[in-house]
Every structure is written in C-alpha cells, then in structure tokens.
Design a protein around this nucleic acid. Structure first.
Lengths: 341, 341
DNA sequence: TTTAATATCGAAAACGTTTTCGATTTTACC
DNA sequence: GGTAAAATCGAAAACGTTTTCGATATTAAA
C-alpha cells in the first residue's frame, strides 16, 4: 500500500490540494472546521509528507554532512556523538564520511556531500590535506561549512578548536614543574595545524624555563598509532640516555610508549615521565595511568553543530555570515605517569 | 550564482530538456554530435543533477539509515566504519542515529529515518527494546531492514550475528581448561538476545564439564560500564571467597573488574582468571592484558550493508525478498588474564 | 520516385509539495 | 438591503528531473 498524499486527502474530502496543505500547517486562511477534518483524515491515513518533494520545493534537506579522518577513534567518536545529538535536537540528520587521513578521499567525500545537497558541512581535515580548493569550492556554492579540531588557518571560515599551543605549553610546563630537564616530544606530521601548534607550545615552554631546545629530541610521527608509540620509544632510547620526560601528541601513541617502557622495566614516572594528549578513556585504566590534556570532544561536537546551524539559518534568511572562531578550554588531568608536584 | 540546470543547458543549446537529459545519460536515441555538445557545455557549466529532483523522480535517495545503541564504543565504531566504507563503494551514504540503549529513542529514530525516506535501515537493538512494532511498521512500509549483533529472534528479517552461545561456551571452556572450578559470570540485562545467549553458553559449558550451575555466581549488569565492572567485582568478592574465574560479557566491564582486582592485589590469573568479550583495543594494553572473544565488528558492518544492499536491489526490481541469516566466526584471543594451557 | 525503416528529437506527464494571488463566500456594519 | 471588510478556498506555477510516446527527419530499399 502506497503512502498517502495530499492529493488523495484532497480528493476524498472534496478539497483542493492547497487547502489540505495549508490546513496541515495551520495557515490562518483555512477554517477550523476543515482543519479538523483534514487533520483527522491525515491521522487515520497515517499521512507523512513526502520528504523528497519537500526537499525539492524548499531547497533544503535538513541534513548535514560530516567528514572526519577516522571513525574508530575515541576523540572523534565523542565529537560525532556531540554533533548527532545536537543536530537531532534541531531537526537535522547527519551523514558521516571518513577521509582516512587522505587528501584525495577527503576531496571525494566533500564532493559527494555537495552533490547530495546537504544543508551544511562539518569537517576535520585529514593530515594529508595540503590544498584547500575543494573546501573553497563548496563554500562558493553557498554551502555553510565549519571546521573543527584539525583546521587550516589559511581558510576563511568558522572554526571551533582548542588552544593547542597553550595546552601543549601547559603539558610541557607540568613536566618541567615536576623536575624533568631533558624532555622529548613525539609530534604529529608536519602539515596539520594542531600538530604544529603543539610543537610550538612545547618549544615555548622550554624557552620559558631556559631549557635549550634540542631538535634531536623531537620525533615526527606519521600515523599516530600505538605501534608508532612503541617504535619511536625504542628509537628515542637508542638515541639518548638522558631523557627524563616525553610529551606525546596523542594518548594512543603515549600508551604505546608506556607499553614499551614497561617492557624494559623503565620506571614511570621515576625515570621517565610521560604526558599525553586527548584523554582517551583507556588512559585512565592502563598502568601507570596516563597524565594527559583533556580535549572536550563531545562539547566540541555540540558547539560545531550550533555554529553551523546558525550559518544555515543566516543563509536562508539571506543575511551575511560572519565567520566565528570558538576556542574551547582544555585542562590537564594528572595521573600516575608524571610525578606529583 | 545558481547551479546549472537541464533547462539552462537546453536553452543555450537550442535543445529540449529531454534530449539534454538523455544525452547526459547516453541514451541511444540521441546523436553523437549533440551528445558531445551537451556534455561539453555541462562540463563547463559544472552541471550537477539536482539531487532533490532526482530523488523525487526516482523515489530513492541512495541513503540508508543506521541506528546503534552507542557511538563512543569500540565495537560499534568498528561496525560503523565497515558500513560506511561498503556503502560508499556502492554509492550510498549513511545517516547515523543512536538510541542510547533506550527503547523510546530507538522508536523515534526509526520514525525519523522512515520519514526521511531512506532506502534501507540497519539496526542494532537497544537493551531497552521489548516491543518490535516500530520495526515491523517500517518493514511494512516496504523499507528493507537488516539487524546486526543485537537482534531479536522473534522478528522476521535478515540478520547478521555471531554465534554468541558458542563464543561464550568457548570462553568458559577455556577457563575450565586452565583449571578454574568456581566461575562467576557478569552478564548483560535480561532482554537482549546476545546477553541471553552468552549466559546460555556459560551454563552449557559448566554442564558439559559436570560443574554445578550456581545462580548466585551470575550477576546481572545494567549499563555494561567500567564502573559496573568495578562495582560488581566488589560485590562478588563480598559474596564469595572461592571464585577462581570470571566470564564477563564485555571487555569494558572486564577492564573495570581487572582494575578493582589489581587495586586489591588479587593476582590475575593466579588467583582469579578473567575472560572478556569483544576484543576492544584497550584490552591488549592494560595489565594484565585481557583474554577475550574477538568479535569482528568491521566485517559485520560490511556484511550487514551488503545484505541490505541486496534487499534494496531486489525491492526495486519488484522481486521477493528472502531473509537471510549470516553468522560470523569468532575466535578466542589468549592473553595474560587467563592461565596458559 | 515512392515506401519502409531507422535515427533523432521534443512535448508532456509525472513525482508531491509549497506558496502566491485571485476568486468567492460569509460576516459586520450602517 | 447595500456596501465594505474579513474569512475561506482553489487554481496554478514552480522546484528539476526522468521517461514514455509520438513526431519529424534522414537513410535505405524497392
């Protein structure tokens, strides 16, 4: 049995399609009597407006697109959850696509979303993204877009981020405050902004405490995986014998590092202190538990959607959109992988 | 600047809308000459078919809906990844909604998806779901639907699952094989099928080894959280002093249990062996690392979409749909929380 | 040169909705 | 009873596409 349409309701009630439509949406120019009639019949026929027709007519789908580097990832899945719940609140659905940290894939996903005519796009950039014409292209098409977490400073659009530099500064400072003097840094790839900013925060903290910056203590990681954490810890121990602290870009890597140090019976934090970044759940349950920077994923998701929602509304009203930057607070979670103050 | 339409291309080329449409889709009844003309102009105008119009006309959106209990969850995010990648391969996009294990929310999400006219629905049921009329309702509307992992036996539809009972049997048997004689079980809530099946597998293994089944050793958990793992471990130790093994429904809970046992300096596995379920990543990095049942989330996502895709195709061709059940293989991952054989 | 076959195109309906604007009817007022 | 105002409704266009079917133009066959 086919779903009911306005035409059918109109026909059985001897009304026109237009009055039926207006009755259901409580237009002032239809009498209460017919409104009741229409609504009752709509109810019994279980009438649902055809979404495709509504989309075509109103030129909006109440759907947004989300592009993230990786789904199986504690931080990003928290963001997803925040976005979905906030979106649902406002009557929007979310299509999720992942770039696998690949520029080419990211480009493809963005185009897919543009072709599907989503009302807006939320994106966290892939590590491999070095060119932003695909982003500018969809923005030129008039599709509202906001970046979160992994952003590009060069692109003119709304963004919601944390202050990566400050967070990294605080993390490094904590290592220094607890007595570390030779502090290594496992950083991310060269391009993503937050990997740059965290590195700068690390450097700044050294400078601020008159500790000489030694480039040989900085290791550039590629995939930010558990295995890389193990591998570069081995490298570090091979290269240096005087390390007493490591600031590591991501918890997952830090956990790899801890695993390796545990294997070698190197005492954490007595011999080497470790501080991570992101506050993955598992950081609280490994041993020793990992001190880290808390990155509010769920909140970031909520804020990102809210910002996008405002832009979607402004666009519909034909108003000018002023890009906004939101910076979320981070804090340091002290656990057992760093010494007590 | 507005996006180009067929009408515009037709106008500037002095053709009709229909021939332009047909030219772009390589219909045989339009000459190569005009095909080339049309395609070139479409290219330069960067023509993209209006998705809303196509949806309305073809009555399909190339979009499916996915309802899961929880996004921030290692197993489910693996499933999501599998679904998304397989769907994209076939030209489908995925709208994700979460039920938060609530029946009411699940009902709402299903209706949302039905109203959006997705081409199909993938669902893993909430713990709280006791009635299935909302599922049957969308199926009666002709929307293909397949269940995965948390299914309901009573509903007649395609399903992809693991053999929970066998997996639980194997896990329990492994405890017995390594010398455990008083084995407790932390199970999930009463309703979900896999929580029932895992319990039955546990019981069956006891029976199979002539170990008496003691109901006081079975604890019914509600939220399957880390905290519940800690809490019920305390309860268990309070209630019994002769436990030498626990089979725990979910890794996250098992990790809570390990944390509690570690805190009390109870040696794992020497005093108490633990085996979990699902193989979350963190299970490999806590200490002691957790023996567990490997549940292939990514593969389950892929298989689920493939099954749904077949049903969508069959429906379009007007053919009858035969529901299928797919059972995926599991295996036991032996780590340090159980004794060696 | 006529006829039949084929190649090429366009008109038009349809998908189901929203919304403007004009037409008709009812009510209020003097 | 007549007029103006308000209330109530419907016709119709529009959104942009797909597809059927009929019309014309071109070619091949006789």
């Amino acid at each position: 049995m086919k779903p009911a349409t306005l035409k059918e309701i109109a026909a059985t009630l001897g009304l026109s399609i237009s009055t039926v439509s207006k009755a259901l949406k409580d237009y002032p120019d239809v009498s209460n009597k017919t409104k009741k009639l229409v609504k009752e019949l709509a109810e019994t026929l279980n009438y649902r407006p055809n979404a495709f027709a509504v989309n075509l007519r109103t030129k909006e789908s109440k759907t947004i697109g989300l592009v993230i580097p990786e789904v199986v990832h504690h931080f990003f899945s928290s963001v997803i959850k925040g976005i979905i719940s906030e979106a649902e609140d406002k009557g929007y659905l979310v299509i999720i696509l992942q770039s696998n940290e690949s520029f080419e894939l990211e480009k493809k996903q963005i185009e897919l979303l543009a072709n599907k005519q989503v009302d807006g796009i939320l994106i966290s950039l892939a590590n491999g993204t070095y060119d932003f014409s695909h982003i500018k292209a969809v923005m030129n098409q008039g599709i509202p877009l906001v970046m979160f977490d992994k952003i590009a400073k060069i692109v003119d659009c709304s963004k919601v981020i944390i202050d990566d530099q400050k967070a990294a500064f605080d993390a490094t400072q904590h290592l220094i405050d607890t007595g570390c003097k030779r502090i290594a840094h496992f950083r991310g790839p060269l391009t993503p902004q937050n990997s740059i900013d965290r590195f700068l925060g690390y450097k700044k903290a050294l400078l601020h405490n008159q500790i000489p910056y030694d480039p040989s203590l900085v290791y550039i990681l590629d995939s930010m995986s558990f295995e890389e954490g193990q591998h570069f810890t081995k490298e570090l121990l091979k290269d240096h014998d005087d390390i007493d602290g490591i600031f590591i870009n991501t918890d997952l890597v830090a956990i790899g590092s801890i695993t390796e140090l545990n294997k070698r019976n190197i005492k954490i934090p007595e011999q080497i202190s470790i501080i991570g970044f992101s506050n993955w759940f598992m950081s609280s349950v490994i041993s020793p538990s990992l001190s880290t920077v808390n990155q509010p994923g769920y909140l970031m998701g909520k804020k990102s959607f809210k910002l996008l929602y405002k832009e979607i509304k402004k666009r519909k009203e034909g108003k000018k959109i002023n890009y906004k930057n939101i910076e979320l607070k981070t804090d340091i979670i002290l656990r057992d992988s760093t010494k007590k103050l």
